[in-house]
Design a protein around this nucleic acid. Structure first.
Lengths: 153, 153
DNA sequence: TCCAGTTGGTCAGGCTACTTGACTACATAG
DNA sequence: CTATGTAGTCAAGTAGCCTGACCAACTGGA
């Protein structure tokens, strides 16, 4: 069976469309989070919170999740500790490691982000119809996209 | 008529999926471009080339396209001129402005990026089916995403 | 035709989120 | 007990962006 000889020319703007969609969502959520009073957090912090909301994580786990060095992750954590969004606890299994967990403020910020995401996505659902948006999500998740998050360039 | 009360919980990972898809495409294209011998260019340059490939542009037009300041655009152009990807020409209509155009090397790099994009998208087309991928593209383009490109954060 | 305000571009300096490299403390395998 | 590996921090450097100041050229109105 012969594979597709060439990808349809129209598809070449997919990178732009994906980047635009990602930016629209992330910027919108960021704006919503700021509007809810959390003016010190960047979008990257949101992706960090998403990891930490599942029982906490270590510095290196966060670094891996965000695809940055452990030093950079350590700096981000230091910053977030200073602003009261997370705290360092001794790790139950490893005296070298520390378990980074969300504080109440961190949880509040995470909930604000979810509300904001909901707000941004509603017009998308209205524009496309819920079933098409769900289909889009299903297709995306089938593309086996790597789970690591990182700024684009 | 009552709008959707709440967005489906599953949809909340759309930001991650979009960002992942954008990253997968952009990283893949970047790797393909490097593999073809253009090791000095960043993904942002690709988006610059995409604009310049339509008859050239001025510094401020490029700045607007990339959503950066004109100073940053000027620095990028200076860098690309030094590496031989673009050149500055006097602007036909405005003595203040300069028309930035691709050199032969710039065009070669642009073609390499298109080949790389094709290469990356083919497995996607195979995984989803061409009609489904085309539908996905159509949906995305209906979302009226802003045309300005920029790093994510 | 002149002048005021606008616009295209550069120069200079600064900021910030990252990087690499070196190091300590603790863990784990032999 | 020792050798190697891993979690985290400290220190210094860097790349790509920013703001502010400036000059030259365009534009519109009196």
């Amino acid at each position: 069976m012969c594979q597709t000889a060439e990808v349809d020319r129209d598809l070449l703007d997919l990178p732009v469309l994906f980047l635009g969609a990602a930016r629209a969502l992330i910027d919108g959520i960021d704006a919503g989070v700021r509007a809810r009073g959390f003016t010190e957090v960047r979008p990257a912090h949101g992706f960090a919170f998403a990891l930490l909301s599942h029982g906490g994580a270590t510095t290196v786990e966060l670094a891996h999740h965000l695809d940055i060095t452990k030093q950079a992750a350590s700096q981000m954590i230091e910053d977030l500790v200073g602003r009261g969004y997370v705290e360092r606890r001794p790790h139950p299994d490893d005296a070298r490691a520390r378990l980074i967990v969300l504080t109440d403020k961190g949880w509040a910020c995470t909930r604000a982000a979810e509300e904001a995401a909901d707000e941004i996505l509603r017009p998308w659902a209205d524009a496309l119809g819920t079933e098409r948006l769900a289909a889009l999500r299903a297709d995306l998740s089938r593309l086996a996209v790597p789970g690591r998050l990182r700024p684009i360039w």
